[in-house]
């Protein structure tokens, strides 16, 4: 496989995103508002408790604030672009290129994630650390956090990609994407840390891939004193989901593209 051509795709996707500066400013402002609200909400939750479910206020806030920052980072609208191209037939131009369609989309998403990271996540992170005075442990956890983030991005991409494939069967993509967003946000722990869930919901979440997007990387970065074994387990879990979802999404791709009909003209 020639990596060079995919890197060009990533780069051009990066440049396209960076060109739209006003998007960053408004997304960043939205993040600030959201972080402010959860700060006060969780202050109220921790009123009279110094520790809930093994998390201090500082840990819970860092977890949720980082989650919002990751959410905007992973939001690259792969499924929306795919569905637009499938519905208007442009997808056929991607199929005739000497590129693997899924890797093409993956590197596009990767370029966009990097641009989101630089322009939205880093400023948000600086605000979390300096304005809200949140302590994030600096050490080995950061190295594992980066690896974990990369795998989280892959998992998030494969889920988006499978949702995008739905457009081969239906045109009503709004409902499907919205439902997906809601399910991913909840069962991944992005709205409330998973350790706050009731027992049975935690068990369900453990068997689903969504917690590997937010809960695993966020637990790695906010929990002090994890052993190497813990890190290895967490990363192995993510690795397993990456492989499973890669295979499933490629299988679905093969099935879905058989149904394609594009009108000539």
């Amino acid at each position: 496989m020639n990596m060079g051509r995919y890197l060009v795709i990533a780069k051009s996707s990066f440049m396209t995103r960076v060109a739209r500066r006003s998007t960053f400013i408004f997304t960043f402002l939205g993040n600030l508002a959201y972080i402010t609200v959860i700060y006060y909400l969780w202050m109220a939750v921790y009123e009279g408790n110094s520790m809930l479910n093994g998390m201090t206020f500082n840990q819970a806030f860092a977890y949720l604030a980082l989650a919002s920052s990751l959410f905007t980072m992973f939001q690259v609208y792969t499924e929306w672009f795919m569905s637009a191209h499938i519905l208007n037939g442009d997808i056929i131009t991607s199929f005739i290129k000497p590129l693997d369609y899924q890797f093409n989309k993956l590197f596009e998403a990767f370029g966009a994630v990097i641009s989101n990271f630089i322009t939205i996540s880093i400023p948000t992170l600086l605000v979390i650390i300096f304005v809200f005075d949140t302590k994030i442990e600096v050490g080995l956890n950061l190295a594992f956090f980066v690896i974990s983030l990369l795998m989280a991005m892959l998992i998030s991409f494969f889920i988006d990609y499978m949702i995008g494939l739905c457009s081969f069967y239906t045109e009503s993509i709004w409902g499907i994407c919205t439902t997906k967003d809601v399910i991913v946000l909840f069962l991944s722990g992005a709205m409330v840390p998973i350790s706050f869930f009731p027992e049975y919901l935690q068990t369900i979440c453990a068997y689903l891939p969504f917690q590997a997007i937010y809960n695993i990387p966020l637990t790695i970065v906010t929990t002090p004193g994890l052993s190497l074994m813990d890190y290895a387990n967490a990363l192995a879990m993510q690795g397993m989901w990456v492989v499973i979802l890669l295979l499933v999404s490629r299988l679905l791709h093969a099935v879905a593209t058989r149904t394609i009909t594009v009108n000539g003209g």
Partner: peptide, 15 residues
């Protein structure tokens, strides 16, 4: 477009 109405309503209920 009844399917669209149905799917969008599910999305709305979930939200």
């Amino acid at each position: 477009y009844r399917t669209d109405f149905f799917i969008s309503t599910i999305g709305m209920i979930f939200t």
